[in-house]
């Protein structure tokens, strides 16, 4: 099992490198000259070139990429940083605070929001997905299906604003600004964030259940004399939930990303607002650091889900554990 985990981690490295390369390339080709922007308008070309040199921005692509990963130690100290692997990409153009410092500070807030949204999405999607599947073609099924369709079609940021309008402005049930210290204020943003996920998960649960219920082993279970409730609960559900768990896991990543849009609507102090503010102020290091950070977390979360999946489905586990014992193993089909 450990071997499987290690192998997957190894496979991840080139992907992570690829991601960093892409993000770095984007900044490299981005038009605009940070050095020129930092100096007063009447600065001479020489002054700009000097500044550029001390910022390390006149080196070749490869050299700058290496700096990006492992750090930059230039003349003087003001533009030095330790590189991505130490989570240090320098300072924000706007606030002059270390970019990763701000990110790491705000990250737990985003995690909180994400977790609440995840929790909500699970407790709603799974029961409704099951109900919808076991009552296929009834009005309940139709209602759930339509609700789920609307859920995947609603733009999150608009939903947030509509929820604020109804529940905050008109009904005064919730505040329109959210802070992590006030759990009640997190309700609306969580619902907004969870909407798309809940819809996707409900549909997934429903279709998975429908597929599983048609399987032969369900027929075997009935032929044993089990009552329908047990057949669904014990035999159908566990099999049906396997793909659902994967989807939920993958959705965690999507939640993180969705937070970017939702947080701004509620002015919630998480990475999303950092990113959006940085974009609006053209604070390149901050944007870069935020994007890389979210992308890396996303990749790691997906890896964790993959590994978890192997624990749940014995067939997947066997594929990887058994692969190590290939020759003469009991595992690969003993003959009748």
């Amino acid at each position: 099992m450990i071997k499987y985990i290690i192998r997957r981690l190894f496979q991840l490295i080139p992907v992570l490198l690829g991601v960093t390369l892409i993000v770095f390339t984007l900044t490299y080709i981005s038009p605009g000259d940070p050095a020129r922007l930092m100096l007063p308008q009447d600065a001479s070309d020489i002054q700009v070139a000097e500044l550029k040199h001390s910022m390390g921005l006149d080196r070749t692509f490869v050299v700058q990429y290496v700096h990006f990963l492992f750090g930059y130690d230039g003349p003087g100290d003001s533009f030095d940083y330790k590189g991505l692997w130490a989570l240090d990409l320098g300072r924000s153009y706007v606030s002059n605070r270390p970019v990763f410092g701000t990110i790491l500070e705000r990250f737990p807030n985003t995690v909180l929001l994400t977790m609440v949204a995840l929790f909500l999405s699970i407790i709603i999607s799974i029961p409704f997905g099951i109900i919808s599947a076991t009552r296929q073609y009834t009005k309940t099924d139709m209602a759930v299906t339509v609700a789920a369709l609307i859920g995947i079609s609603v733009p999150a940021f608009w939903l947030g604003m509509m929820l604020i309008w109804v529940f905050s402005v008109n009904l005064h049930w919730f505040p329109s600004l959210a802070t992590p210290s006030n759990l009640w204020s997190i309700v609306l943003p969580s619902i907004t964030l969870a909407a798309m996920n809940t819809a996707v998960q409900t549909r997934m649960t429903r279709s998975s259940m429908l597929e599983v219920v048609r399987m032969d082993y369900i027929r075997t279970a009935r032929a044993k004399g089990l009552d329908e409730g047990t057949v669904i609960r014990v035999h159908a559900l566990r099999n049906a939930l396997i793909p659902v768990v994967t989807v939920i896991g993958l959705q965690v990543g999507q939640l993180l990303v969705g937070a970017v849009l939702t947080e701004t609507v509620f002015s919630y102090p998480g990475i999303g607002t950092i990113m959006v503010d940085a974009i609006q102020r053209k604070d390149t290091p901050q944007i870069l650091a935020s994007v890389v950070f979210v992308a890396l977390v996303f990749a790691l979360v997906n890896l964790a889900v993959d590994i978890l999946y192997a624990f749940i489905d014995p067939r997947i586990k066997a594929q990887y554990v058994g692969a190590a014992k290939k020759k003469g193993g009991l595992f690969r089909g003993s003959k009748a």
Binding site: M215, D216, Y217, R219, T220, A221, A223, H235, R238, N239, I242, D313, P314, R315
Partner: peptide, 13 residues
């Protein structure tokens, strides 16, 4: 009762 296809008659988990 036993059925035709043994490959799918048993619950895989």
């Amino acid at each position: 009762m036993i059925f035709q296809d043994p490959m799918t008659s048993l619950n895989p988990i």
